[in-house]
Amino acid sequence: MRRGQFFREKWPYLILLVFALAVPALFPSRYVLQVITMSCVFAIATLGLNLILGYTGQVSLAHAGFFAIGAYGVAMMTKAGLSFWLALPLSALLAAAVSFFVGLPTLRTRGSYFAIATLCFGVIVSIVAGSWFSLTGGHTGIVGIPLPNAIPFPLVGEIGFHSKAAQYYLVLGFLLLTLFVMHRLVNSVQGLSFVAVRNNEVLAGAVGINAFATKLLSFVIASFFAGIAGGIYASLMRSVSPDVASINLMFNWVVYLLLGGAGTLAGPVVGTLAISALTESLQFLAEYNLLVFGALLVAAMVYCPRGLVGLVEAGGKKVRVYYRRQVGVRSDLEG
């Protein structure tokens, strides 16, 4: 009975999962698969950003900085001979630790002040990455980063990550893991206090939530996932350069998040995949690419301010209302 109910309620997710697992078979082109894999990496970063920006309401523009810390961390550690599976959590923890010390002074500020203070940190990371030649290799960056180490399995042998499909499944696994953690987190009491701080910081304080500690926790967790995404990125691209800390990357994520729908779990993933697909399909415009994209962005904000998920929800509500009218359910009985 319970299992039947589970399938009745969750079947759209199962279809999505089957589709996600079938992606390498559906898109045999190496290029397309690479684009999808990288979009999934960015989706992990955007999910992290969603926690601090979407759920906690703090516009952090330092996210690319933490992504870069994760990327450079994995690059340096794996080149020094450490296993990817050890280097990745270490780098993400490093990003989280740095974000703790960045959060202490910057989270004292609010609103736009916080956005600009974190933006400054992001820019500092990108300048340091470009200038500290002995550590980061300057503007050329670090090349020849090893792929993730193969996982030995008792019966099937080793799972290596040389093929594009294997890399895709690796990233998909991390994406699902991130979604699972975020799902558990935002539906917990801690998740509610994030939302409480977003909605009204003073009120949250009045009911006993330590707003500063809550924001700091959200900021640190968000940066941890930025670090994870950065580490995977470095290992799959096999090179890093100061571009990973660039403001443009940061702006892209904010766009993915807000067009997808901030403060929802589907929003960041949908936004990242949809907009990556859009920018890829605009490639034929060559130098007119950003001209069209910029105009589309403004139009999207004017005509669908709540993002794609908001658009779908609004559309779904209209359909439901229409359907109920057709079958004659009185509107005051609607949940």
Partner: peptide, 21 residues
Amino acid sequence: HVNAFISAIGTLMFLEAFVMV
């Protein structure tokens, strides 16, 4: 506010691409 922020990003992309073209 963040929506105006995104619009501003759209505008700056447009202006930069315009000058490049």
